[in-house]
Design a protein around this nucleic acid. Sequence first.
DNA 1: ACGCAAAATTGCGCGCACGCAATATTTTGC
DNA 2: GCAAAATATTGCGTGCGCGCAATTTTGCGT
Lengths: 204, 204
Amino acid sequence: MEPGLRARKKQATRAALQAAALRLALERGPGNVRVEDIAEAAGVSPRTYNNYFSSREQAIVAGITADRAEQVAAAVVGSPAATGLGDAVVTAVVGLYADPGDRPRAAMLMVATSPALRACYADTVTSIEGPLAEAIAERCPGVDPLTAQVLSAAVGAAARVGLRQWLRPATGAGGLVVTSGSLPDLVRAALLPLAPALDAAAGR
Amino acid sequence: MEPGLRARKKQATRAALQAAALRLALERGPGNVRVEDIAEAAGVSPRTYNNYFSSREQAIVAGITADRAEQVAAAVVGSPAATGLGDAVVTAVVGLYADPGDRPRAAMLMVATSPALRACYADTVTSIEGPLAEAIAERCPGVDPLTAQVLSAAVGAAARVGLRQWLRPATGAGGLVVTSGSLPDLVRAALLPLAPALDAAAGR
DNA sequence: ACGCAAAATTGCGCGCACGCAATATTTTGC
DNA sequence: GCAAAATATTGCGTGCGCGCAATTTTGCGT
């Protein structure tokens, strides 16, 4: 059964809201954009905005991190069967942060600047946990569903730590090493300590 | 240097706010308590409330989960040196959820009922991550600080999953096993998959 | 004891999130 | 096609979170 007019229109307005939010935030700065503005730009009532997104920042970051979840899940189930679960997951997640061009880079800079956006952006990794858990369960039919959930939640948490580390504005004083490498490397480093747990669960 | 009058008074009003919030929430139900009420009960301005807590629910849950963080950290560094890091951490965290009496149980029931409180309660485990990371670093001087952070974040995430599982209102339909055991057992089960990662990091 | 600087409290105003009920639009069944 | 059921959009009202500036309280040196 195809989506139907209703669902398609819903997706359309959602996309319009995301696009409008991102555009306005980029050209005015995130602090100078009210929900009213976004709603107007998308041709919809302010109240309707909050039917789609439950915070002002959500639409902006949603415009950046569109379909992370499906990406990771697909990468995990699609990785060669020979590789261990740890490698598969780490590679899949790191793949999300390979630099994809120029427009996104400006967006990331904006995210790094605004604390509210940082927080919201970190929260988006939560959205991958569900699909990732399913992917793990599918790849390793033997594991307890709860274990799969736990592992994916742990992966999410680790990714958040890596993210946080990357967009830390350089604390200055006490920090011994402030040089944060490239994002993918940082995320990989953050995920690595979890590999033993993943492999142990996979190996039963 | 002892706290000084200033800091002590601050702690006093914070405690008063927590107590008032918890009391009012228990006797009226969490939905029927406005910030204004809590502030008034604590003899302070509504604006001041938000100088101490940044959400309406925070004061309530703070009244329940007082000094979790120090507890866990102490338990980790204080556990016998012979036990592996995995066992030490698991035991320490599980120890937080040993049933401590009757008043807390009523409070937990209230938390389980209100979605907003559930979310806020889950967020509180985040507060243990910092101290836990320090404790891990102290116990195993060899490990990378980033690794310590990652592991404690993962532990927090796992604990959240256990919590969520426990206070799930029984989805009914598709759930094969809805019988959730006791909270401590559930949390232990959730933490167990991470033990390999902890031990691996500790053993270098 | 006194006054001054630091810090906490307070009032004010703005925008946001959301429940609720009314309204408009789409889908379904005939 | 068309009425009815299902679902989406909107306006309104309430409470919340917080930046800002004025005011009060606290701590300390002399």
